[in-house]
């Protein structure tokens, strides 16, 4: 592995200054589970690593009734998944976390690092100088694209690899970002970017910016939520397609809700038509079929991934049936 120097700043300001203005110079190291893979494969070649472990409060989770959950970026995936409040109230997040990577990786990886992990496109991870690495071509467009996106693609066709991000998007989460001279909070929806806006980055972060906390609003007591991840193997694997649903259940019908999708687009994905249709929807076979029919009607599959459309439509029906049971 390439050598680098290692910094352990005592606060965010210092960390941000150390990161500087160049992705090539310095990178954050949280759990290192994605970063080391990137460095070992020569995809990232930082001269400096900046570690946040000495910065106070980043490993804490707080819950306040009415306000919701505030999660420090350095909280380990397993610690978050094990919390009662997450399991009982934010079930969709607990289920997504339990489906993330392997037990060891969940003991090492942090939620901030998970949201900022780089894509898994095999050309990106392999020895291909593709668009996302500053090259001229997307090799997936006409190449092996079975696992690539069906929506939001072009000129690059990655899918975003994070499971927790999909759950957090359905939960209407936001992230706080601290940089050299300011701190601000954005909805998760605006945190991720599509390739048409920036083909080389997956989110809005500038090189000197750090995700410090993730906020999840409190939920009404009639909320039921869940995550279904379709993968090719039973043990750890990235999502082929995943669906997160957060539904407010009335006695006869769904009062309203949101769904978010993984494995389908370069960022965790939402479709307004689906969320609108959930409004006061009665859970019947006919209504579920109509909901599935209006889902992903704008999708533009590549040569090998058309199967994702029926797959995501079936998962939409399955997750609602499960939550309604």
């Amino acid at each position: 592995m390439k050598s680098f120097s290692y910094h352990q700043p005592k606060d965010i300001r210092e960390a941000s200054n150390l990161l500087g203005d160049n992705w090539q110079d310095a990178l954050l190291n949280a759990g290192g589970t994605d970063l080391l893979g990137l460095i070992k494969h020569d995809i990232e070649k930082p001269d400096h690593l900046v570690n946040l472990k000495a910065v106070k409060d980043l490993d804490k989770v707080r819950y306040q009734e009415g306000k919701g959950l505030s999660i420090g970026a350095l909280v380990k995936l397993n610690d978050l998944a094990a919390m009662d409040i997450v399991q009982n109230k934010y079930t969709v997040l607990a289920e997504a976390l339990q489906e993330t990577a392997s037990p060891q990786l969940r003991n090492m990886g942090t939620i901030g690092g998970n949201l900022c992990q780089r894509p898994r496109c095999w050309y990106f991870r392999g020895d291909f100088d593709c668009l996302r690495k500053g090259g001229e071509l997307c090799f997936a467009a006409d190449g092996e694209n079975k696992y690539h996106c069906i929506s939001g693609g072009g000129p690059c066709f990655i899918v975003h690899p994070s499971d927790p991000a999909v759950a957090l998007l359905a939960l209407d989460a936001s992230v706080t970002i601290a940089g050299k001279d300011r701190e601000y909070t954005v909805p998760l929806h605006d945190f991720f970017v599509l390739p048409e806006d920036d083909v080389m980055r997956e989110n809005i972060l500038q090189p000197h910016e750090i995700v410090t906390r993730i906020h999840v609003p409190d939920l009404p007591s009639n909320t039921r939520s869940g995550y279904i991840k379709f993968k090719e193997r039973d043990v750890w694997d990235f999502a082929v397609v995943s669906v997160a649903a957060v539904l407010r259940m009335g006695s006869e019908r769904i009062e309203g809700g949101t769904m978010a999708f993984g494995g389908v687009a370069p960022k965790p994905w939402m479709e307004k038509t689906i969320n609108d249709a959930l409004n006061r929807m009665e859970v019947t076979d006919t209504n579920l079929d109509s909901l599935a029919q209006i889902a992903f009607t704008d999708a533009l599959p590549l040569a090998q991934n058309g199967y994702k459309i029926p797959l995501v439509r079936n998962l939409i029906k399955r997750v609602i049936r499960t939550l309604n049971a």
């Binding site: 759990g31 589970t33 690593l49 060891q104 990786l105 003991n107 090492m108």
Partner: peptide, 22 residues
């Protein structure tokens, strides 16, 4: 590469991949 588990050790009592952390 953090994919197989052969290098598993305990860090403060919890299983981690020793090949994939500094």
């Amino acid at each position: 590469h953090g994919e197989c588990g052969a290098c598993t050790v305990l860090l403060d009592g919890r299983a981690v991949y020793s090949c994939h952390m500094l």
